[in-house]
């Protein structure tokens, strides 16, 4: 009997942990929105965070996008061999980069880079009492730490994503011309054939939500760090894992809701 109940107990406990976590995260989010009124506290910190979240992430995001674009073009031409005209390479590269790979790969890369960074930094501040120190110096820690990071994420992840999409498409384009013996006109024809302005809106909506998820989850795990260096490591790992999963779930969610 015990053995029979065990899986259910595990499932129940897992579900409760998840629900509790989501609840606490929701509370942090609500507090973040409230803390946003302390403009004097976070405004000065916003630009540095935008530099960290955005500018510093540009190289890795573009690197990923570059190779994604190349691979997409090559795989598309391989798949379409004979049966489908080659300008569909342009359709595939454009649509895929905009709708899916641009936002999602950038999001995943940034959850590793930015999310982990935030969780580690805030986690360290937590275990070394720096957050308490902020409080005693009359700084609301959420306004000081969370608001600028989340805002920077919301602003800069779409920016980085836009650049990544651009680079990915150009990489696919150059690949198509150089390696696939396609004409530039063919590729552009494919690119524009099914293009809708909504594609860009969709990508930006996704990227904005990813920016929010990555930073808020990073802050959440950072804030809830317990124990010393080990706790920080634990938080960092969890922040990356959870925000990556959240990105994929959110990705499916947007596809369901908006497409």
């Amino acid at each position: 009997m015990q053995l029979l109940l065990k899986p259910f107990a595990l499932l129940g406990r897992g579900g409760m942990t998840l629900a509790a976590g989501v609840g606490q995260w929701g509370r942090l989010t609500a507090e973040t929105v409230q803390a946003a009124r302390h403009v004097d506290v976070w405004l000065r910190l916003l630009i540095p965070q935008m530099a960290r979240v955005g500018v510093d992430s540009v190289p890795i995001a573009l690197f990923i996008a570059l190779f994604t674009g190349i691979v997409l073009a090559l795989q598309a031409s391989y798949t379409f061999t004979g049966a489908i005209p080659l300008y569909f390479v342009g359709v595939l590269v454009g649509k895929t980069m905009m709708l899916e790979l641009g936002p999602v790969l950038t999001g995943l890369a940034l959850s590793g880079r930015v999310g982990a960074n935030i969780a580690a930094e805030i986690g360290t501040m937590r275990v070394t009492e720096q957050i308490d120190a902020l409080e005693t110096l009359a700084y609301p820690p959420i306004a000081y730490l969370v608001v600028p990071r989340v805002l920077a994420g919301i602003i800069m992840v779409p920016v980085v994503t836009a650049l990544a999409i651009g680079v990915g498409i150009v990489a696919g384009w150059i690949t198509a011309i150089q390696l696939l013996d396609m004409s530039s006109a063919d590729f552009v024809n494919g690119l524009t054939l099914f293009f809708l302005p909504f594609d860009v809106t969709f990508a930006m909506i996704k990227a904005t939500s990813f920016g929010f998820i990555i930073t808020s989850i990073g802050c959440f795990f950072g804030f809830n760090t317990q124990g010393g260096a080990e706790g920080v490591g634990h938080s960092t790992t969890r922040a990356v894992v959870v925000s990556s999963m959240a990105i994929l779930v959110l990705d499916a969610f947007w596809a369901l809701v908006l497409l």
Binding site: V58, V159, A162, L163
Partner: peptide, 12 residues
């Protein structure tokens, strides 16, 4: 930061 944002906005 400004340059990156402007580049992205122009690109989009």
């Amino acid at each position: 930061v400004g340059v990156v944002i402007v580049a992205a906005v122009l690109l989009v």
